[in-house]
Amino acid sequence: MALLEVKDLQVRVEDREILHGLSLSVNPGEVHAIMGPNGSGKSTLSHVIAGKPGYEVTGGQILFRGEDLLEMAPDERAAKGVFLAFQYPVEIPGVATMNFLRTALNAQRKARGESEYSTPDFLKKVREVAKSLNIPQDMLKRGVNVGFSGGEKKRNEILQMALFEPSLCILDEMDSGLDIDALRIAADGVNALRSPERAMVVITHYQRLLNYIVPDYVHVMAKGRVVKSGDKHLALELEAAGYAPFEHAA
């Protein structure tokens, strides 16, 4: 069974249809890249999988391990192992990062019927992961993402990913706003999490990210559907030819 099965998905925002019958199948251990021009519906897809309000699914389904994901609240999806790394991680003043991480991790564990982490185990784990991602300890004491640079915000997303150990990671434009060094650190963090049990969907506008996170499959989206799928070489083709031929094809 595929880990994630998107079938003929149609999605509206207000009166506009954004996705017109998108299909995608992702197996455990695979890394899929979704590329496409602005407005092709890449972020909409990531939001609908994570359960963001404001989108109306008018047709199709999303199955996660065979279960209907669209019937679940966003927190149920998270507890089942779906993780969205946000393109624009929000700032939450007054909520200390450490407190947030612990609350979220224990909420997920509780929902799965697992025991809560003890404080020493939790701290040890956070410190380890933070160190590997070059996240200083004092950042963890600050409000969530408050005063963080673009790179720090993205690293904080990956820190959460490492901590929550989801089985499906969706990375929405992880490279946006990052310089090359920040991108390398973030990508190393993601690569360290690749495993035979875990799948990743990497959404990006540029091929550059895929030099660091090398995908098994590349899908090109245009005008709300997947117009071409291939292996990592497709990304290089795109880099050379641009999106114009695909938009035309759509």
Binding site: K52, P74, D75, A78, A104, A107, Q108, Q160
Partner: peptide, 13 residues
């Protein structure tokens, strides 16, 4: 937006 971020991280409403 903040509520959705927290819920996407596993917190109930």
């Amino acid at each position: 937006t903040l509520l959705f971020y927290l819920r996407a991280r596993g917190l109930s409403g």
